[in-house]
Amino acid sequence: MRRLAALVCLLVPLLIAVPARAAATPIQVYGSWHCGNDACIWGAVRDVSEFDQKNHWLIDRGDGRPSVNVVVLSFVHPVKLLHKTTDAQTLDGVPRGMTADIVNYFKSRGIRVMLSIGGITYTDAWNAALAENAAQFGRNAAEVAQRLGVGIEIDYEENSGADLAGLQSFIDAYRAVLPYDATGANQAARLTIDLAAGDRWLIDIGRKATADWLRTTAPVLDYANAMVPARQPSASAAIANWQEHLDGKATYAPPIPPLAPAKFTGSLYIAEGNKVLPECTGFGASLQNTTGTFVQTAAPNGAGTSSGLLGYMFWAAERPSTRGVTTLPPNTCEGGVGGGATAYSIPIPMPALRQS
């Protein structure tokens, strides 16, 4: 009887159904938006030594390895880029602080660099640039990308009545100069877009991007960033937002189709108001830790074939606003963002991205 009982004890666990879970997919995109020292204007040339004192954590998590594999310099003014404006804060359409020296500060460490066009402050400027000459706007963006060896991020935050035809013309013009490059080898060909945290804001842009520009079968844009919500979410709220992109919104008229996991990142705050967040200072208590299983295993639900989001983006390095906490010393983020880079074995430089 004892032998029979022992045999039953061995067999029973094998008969209990265990829910299937996708194998974890390695995170590929792990980066930070960067606002410079003047609340995202980048209006003055930076001395590289001074810049390094404020931002060394990005290139060194404490052991000589970078904390991120992409930095997005934010923001370029759309109309100034269209007009190739030169003024006190701008040189030939680009903020004076976004110099080749700053780009190379990151690229020399294997960190990819992108320039973000827009942001919520420049929504009207996006509308104006698209209305005036969307195709020339796109060509100018491509020229800057080639000259600096950077990618371009579309951050067009028009929630109602977005100029989708103009945005299509901008993208078409950019791609006529710099075709989609699945290998990622041509860094200037990297063209991404920012979407809302979930599917309930920027609805028209989200629908258009998901249906026409972010398909795995015929990609036009490399990927999207699901941006941060109004404030730092809980882990469950962050996951719920990201799941909306995976599911789409079939009940909307017209519906928003599902987005492939391999076509977007989730975003978190590292600096918010007057709080020093664990996302910056301590990986163990951070959302990039507690949401990590979802981000690496999220299953496709009607689009794509591979599981797992591309990774994480963090808002935002140095001084994203004139008030509140920044990532300046002593609030540097090698313990949070850098700790996550170690925990997730983030590849540096960024590898060729999954395409399905």
Rank of each mutant, 00 (worst) to 15 (best):
V220A: 15
V220F: 08
L221H: 13
L221T: 15
L221K: 11
L221F: 14
D222G: 13
D222A: 11
D222F: 12
D222N: 15
D222C: 05
D222T: 14
Y223L: 15
Y223A: 08
A224F: 03
A224N: 08
N225T: 15
N225D: 13
N225A: 15
N225V: 15
A226M: 04
A226T: 07
A226D: 12
M227T: 05
M227Y: 07
M227A: 15
V228N: 15
V228G: 06
V228R: 14
V228Y: 12
P229L: 06
P229A: 09
P229V: 09
P229G: 13
P229I: 12
A230W: 03
A230D: 08
R231V: 09
R231S: 13
R231E: 11
R231F: 14
Q232N: 15
Q232F: 06
P233T: 11
P233V: 09
P233E: 07
P233L: 02
P233N: 11
S234M: 08
S234V: 10
S234T: 11
S234N: 11
S234W: 11
A235H: 02
A235D: 12
A235Q: 14
A235T: 12
A235V: 04
S236A: 11
S236D: 15
S236F: 11
A237E: 09
A237I: 00
A237V: 05
A237Y: 10
A238L: 13
A238M: 13
A238Y: 07
A238T: 09
A238P: 02
A238R: 13
A238G: 12
I239W: 03
A240S: 12
A240L: 13
A240N: 13
A240Q: 06
A240M: 12
N241E: 05
N241A: 12
N241V: 02
W242I: 00
W242T: 14
W242Y: 08
W242K: 01
Q243D: 07
E244C: 09
E244D: 08
E244Y: 05
H245W: 09
H245E: 08
H245Y: 12
L246S: 08
L246V: 14
L246N: 03
L246C: 02
D247N: 14
D247V: 06
D247S: 11
G248A: 04
G248Y: 00
G248N: 01
G248M: 01
G248H: 00
G248R: 00
K249R: 09
K249M: 01
A250Q: 02
A250P: 09
A250M: 03
T251N: 03
T251R: 01
T251L: 05
T251H: 06
Y252Q: 03
Y252T: 00
Y252H: 04
Y252P: 02
A253I: 05
A253S: 08
A253F: 04
P254W: 00
P254M: 00
P255V: 00
P255Q: 03
I256L: 01
I256H: 02
I256N: 02
I256P: 04
P257C: 01
P257S: 10
P257E: 06
P257A: 15
P258Y: 04
P258E: 05
